[in-house]
Amino acid sequence: MVARLYRTLWRIGEVVGVVSETPRTKSLVLDVPGWEGHKAGQHVDVRLTAPDGYQTQRSYSIASAPEDERVVLTVDRLDDGEVSTYLTDVVTAGDRLELRGPIGGYFTWEEGDGGPLFLVGGGSGVVPLMAMTRHRATSGSDVPTRLLLSFRSHEEIIYREELEDLAAHDGSLEVFYTLTRARPQGWTGYHRRIDARMLEEVSWGPHESPLAFVCGPTPLVETVGTALVGLGHDPARVKTERFGATGG
């Protein structure tokens, strides 16, 4: 059997909006002519070209729902990042970006895949999970869904208001937070790194056979993956994606 061949073409998208999500995270709203759509959870490759022809590429998860006509990338600024600093410090509306995709066909969720859904993210690992959450909302799905999200501090929570708003209007969507460093006064969420006990409290039991998506830095993904399997979850129902600190 030979896989169906199609070229994943480089396209030029126009930045039509920039949203500051947190002090170090921005969403770039792109108009990409010829975009053929994506599945929630997929990413794109972005390629930058300097005047002397030097090029470099990085991958960024798509934050928008497939139903959204615009492609939204949420970029976390890494201080030593070559591409993320450009995308967050330099790019403004009207700029053009070269990209290709969508890429990745495993860490994806479509309404028909069912649930219950357990989405676990750390930092900008929330981005592909947000695409799934937005897709779920846009498609009118009532698949029971719980998000467990870990951030260092309250001001670093990405999409907080939108998630609050979605959960307020949807009894089958619950969002849990843990803050690993600073927490505001009166904080009632968790205040530690995600561990097996937290997962047991927040997640469905293995008998309910949730579909888990875990995205974040490697230590978080390792902890969560191992703990979920240890709690009796089927490893085949635990999908992972990692954001290395060596990204850029």
Partner: peptide
Amino acid sequence: GQYLVDGFPVLSAGPTPL
């Protein structure tokens, strides 16, 4: 299209089998 790293990033699609 590649860039050099010093660390050793980890990638996998599911939990680490033991």
